[in-house]
Amino acid sequence: MIEDIIQILVLIGMMITAYLSVKSRDLMECAILLGVFSFLLSLEFFILQAPDVAIAEAGIGAGLTTAIFVMAVRKTTRWEVEE
């Protein structure tokens, strides 16, 4: 029961972070939100009995890609502009 509640909370959190990262105009915020999304995803994998995938997702998704996004955003402009 408690597992189900956690799972629902995690999934709702994933949906919120995904939506916010699409809507936000601050690219740095998007990158951090995607990191949070990956972290929640890896939690979800862990709840679904896949610790193997969870470690990979935490390392690659939450760690490395966030770092790469942050680097890329810092070298360009931080705010999305209307063309």
């Binding site: 193997d52 470690i55 990979a56 935490a58 390392g59 690659i60 760690g63 490395l64 770092a67 790469i68």
Partner: peptide, 11 residues
């Protein structure tokens, strides 16, 4: 997985 974690440290 382990290699990715180590690379996170480098990052």
């Amino acid at each position: 997985q382990g290699g990715a974690v180590i690379a996170t440290g480098v990052a």
